[in-house]
């Protein structure tokens, strides 16, 4: 039987199936309490509609691996940050066509726009076309070099 962390860590994000919930840093902890697996997850944004799905997917993965009656809890603190996305997660996002976020600025009141690299052609000559996109965590960008639109996961 695989260790419970290894089972849960492979659960893909329902809206970004190329990355797992461990890659995104939304899987906070996996422990065993009185013989039951207890998993803690945190939402990316308060309104993340995928959280119910993630909870169900985690429970299903554990049941399939032989861990019945798993508990899945949601925590809000500490608040999720894109700094928790792993190196593997960043690489997978870029391969999937989503430009990964830069480091979160230490002073959030200072807006310092850094270039976002086009995940298609790699050019840094890109511009933001909309601050919001298909999910709350993404923004819409366009590459000036290859002219392709792409999504960027915004630093949070």
């Amino acid at each position: 039987m695989s260790a419970p962390w290894d089972v849960v860590a492979t659960v893909p994000d329902p809206e970004l199936p190329a990355v797992t919930i461990a890659d995104l840093g939304i899987l906070r902890s996996v422990s065993i309490v009185d013989g039951r697996v207890v998993v803690t997850v945190t939402p990316t944004y308060s309104g993340c509609p995928a959280l119910a799905e993630i909870t169900a997917d985690v429970r299903r993965a554990l049941t399939d691996a032989g861990y019945a009656d798993a508990e899945v809890h949601t925590v809000l603190a500490p608040a999720w940050t894109t700094d928790w996305i792993t190196e593997a997660g960043r690489r997978k996002l870029a391969e999937y066509g989503i430009a990964p976020p830069g480091a979160v600025s230490p002073a959030p009141s200072v807006s310092l726009p850094l270039s976002v690299r086009c995940p298609q052609c790699g050019s840094p000559d890109t511009r933001e076309s909309s601050r919001f996109s298909g999910t709350p965590c993404r923004a819409l960008w366009v590459c000036r070099a290859c002219r392709e639109p792409f999504e960027h996961m915004k630093a949070l």
């Binding site: 309104g47 601050r131 919001f132 298909g134």
Partner: peptide
């Protein structure tokens, strides 16, 4: 269209805060 998506996202954030 971009603004449509933006306002829908803003509404979703607020709804998420309201739910908690």
């Amino acid at each position: 269209l971009e603004e449509d998506v933006a306002l829908a996202n803003i509404a979703l954030d607020l709804l998420g805060q309201a739910r908690y």
